[in-house]
Amino acid sequence: MDMIAGKIKLTSKTVDQSMNPLDVLERETRLSARDVTVHYGDKQALFGISIDIPDRAVTSFIGPSGCGKSTFLRCINRMNDTIEGARVGGSIKLDGDDVYDPNLDVVELRARVGMVFQKPNPFPKSIYENVAYGPKIHGLARSRTDLDEIVVSSLRKAGLFEEVKDRLNEPGTSLSGGQQQRLCIARAIAVGPQVILMDEPCSALDPIATAIIEELIDELRENYTIVIVTHSMQQAARVSQKTAFFHLGKLIEEGVTEDIFTNPEHKQTQDYIMGRIG
C-alpha cells in the first residue's frame, strides 16, 4: 500500500524542466545509507559508506576500478545477496524502510528499485516479452490491453518505441547494443520503480548510443531517483547533479557535481579528476 501511495505522489508532482544544479541540496532524501560495510569472504570491500541520495535527481558514483562503487550500488537493491559469501553491514533506508530488515521482501524491494546493468542483457525473448516480463511477474496488468499499455508507455519513456513499434515480436537480442540497453531501461521502468540503479550503463556502447542514453537519463530524472556508476568523469559531469567519489572501498568525497569537479576538497579527488590516479 505504502509503495503505491508513494508512486502516485511521485507522478502527480509537477516536474521542473530546468533544474538549478544547486537545487539538489533542497531535494528530499530518498535513500540514506549509514556506515555500510561489505565483506566478500575474508576480504572487506566497503568501509563505512554514509551518503544521502536525493529524490528525482541523478547521483553519480565515480572512482577507479575496484573502488567499491558497483558493490555499493548492488547493496541498494540487495543484488549482493546473490553472491556467495557476501556480507553487508550498516543500514540503507529507502523512504525510511530499512532495506536489510529481515521482514522486508526482497522481491518488493527490487520492484521499487530497478536496475540496469553494465552489459545490455535482454532476455532471449521478443521485445514485447522483455518489457512485459516484470509487469507479468508482479501482476501489474489486469488484462491484455493493460499490459499492452504498460509495454508501449515504458518503451516510449525509454525513447525506443518509435524504433521498434513494427517489430515488437522480434527477439530483443536482434537490436543494436544501444537499443538493447534502452530496452533494458524500458524493462526496468515497466515495473514502476521509484529508484533506478545504473551500473556503468554505457561502458559497452559507442559514443552515439552513449549520447542517446545520457539524454534519456536526463529526461528520466524528472520522475525517478537515478543512481549511476560510471568510469567516465565527463559522463558524471554531464548527467548528474550529485557526485560521490570512491577510492579503495571508502567514500572520499560527495557533493554537488559542479563543486566536486571545479573545487574538490580532497587531494585524492582532485588527483582522480585530473587523471593522476585510476
Binding site: T82, R110, M115, I137
Partner: peptide, 17 residues
Amino acid sequence: PRAMRDGSLGLGATQSE
C-alpha cells in the same frame, strides 16, 4: 550468462520465476 539471471532478479522476480 549470469547477466540473464541478474537481469531477472533485478526486476524483482523470485528465484523460481
